[in-house]
Write a protein that binds this DNA or RNA. Structure first.
Lengths: 102, 102
DNA sequence: AACCGATGTCCGCGATCGATGACAACACAG
DNA sequence: CTGTGTTGTCATCGATCGCGGACATCGGTT
C-alpha cells in the first residue's frame, strides 16, 4: 500500500502483526522497544523514532520502496498490484527482447 | 529503490534534492525544518522524527510503498530497475496480451 | 462470579531531539 | 585576492521521546 502519513504506517504494522498472530508484547520484544511504543505507532503516533519504525517493519517482513512519483506507474495507471501480479524481471526481459530497448 | 535503513532514505533524499536543483536551505524551508536537520537526514541520522521524514519525502515528490516481502517480485529476482527503466503499465499490458496473463 | 490475556492510559525519569546562531572548509566567479 | 554560495560542525536550550511500572478496560474461559 501507498504510505503517506504515520497513520498509514500504523495501519500497515497493525494489520501485519495480526496476520502473523503476534500480540503487542511479543512484537515489542522482537523489535526491542516497549509495548507502549508499539501502541503509539499503531495509533499513528506522529513523532516517532524513524529507525525504530524501520526495525519494526523489518521484524514484520514489510518491505519499503521509495521512488520518484513521476515514474510511479501504479499512480499514473491506478494499477493496484504494481509488484505482486507478475515477475517483473521476466516481463522486462521479454519486453526488451522484443525491441523496446531499455 | 528498496529502503531498509535511515541511510537508504538519506541517499534517496539527497539524490532527489540535487535532481531538483534545490540546496539544503531551500528544502529545509519547504519542509519546515532547520537546515541542520536536512544535513542530518541526508547523512543517515539514525533517530529522526518519522513525520518529518514523511514530509520531506512528500516535498521532494518521493512516493513510499509498503508491502509484504513475500509478494515482492523485484526482491525475489534482484532486478535493479523495477520502476524507472520503462513504463511498467505498458509492458504489463503487452505481456498479458501475449498470453502470459497473471 | 472469578480469572485471564490483550489492549490502552497515566505518571515520572533520563536521554535525545530539533531549532538557533556562529563559524570553518571548500569551490567558484569576478 | 575578494566576495559569494553551499555544505558541514559545534554549543546551547527548551521540548519531546521512549522506558518502566502501575492501573483500567474489555472479551473470553472456567
Amino acid at each position: 500500500m501507498r504510505v503517506r502519513t504515520p497513520t498509514d504506517v500504523g495501519l500497515s504494522i497493525r494489520e501485519r502483526r495480526k496476520a502473523l498472530q503476534l500480540d503487542q508484547a511479543e512484537l515489542a520484544r522482537r523489535v526491542g522497544v516497549s509495548r507502549q511504543w508499539i501502541i503509539g505507532i499503531e495509533k499513528g503516533k506522529a513523532r516517532a523514532d524513524f529507525s525504530l519504525v524501520m526495525r519494526t517493519l523489518d521484524a514484520l517482513g514489510i518491505v519499503l520502496w521509495a521512488e520518484d512519483e513521476n515514474s510511479a506507474a501504479a499512480q499514473q495507471t491506478g494499477d493496484p498490484l504494481p509488484f505482486s501480479a507478475v515477475r517483473i524481471a521476466d516481463v522486462l526481459a521479454a519486453h526488451r527482447g522484443a525491441g523496446a530497448g531499455q
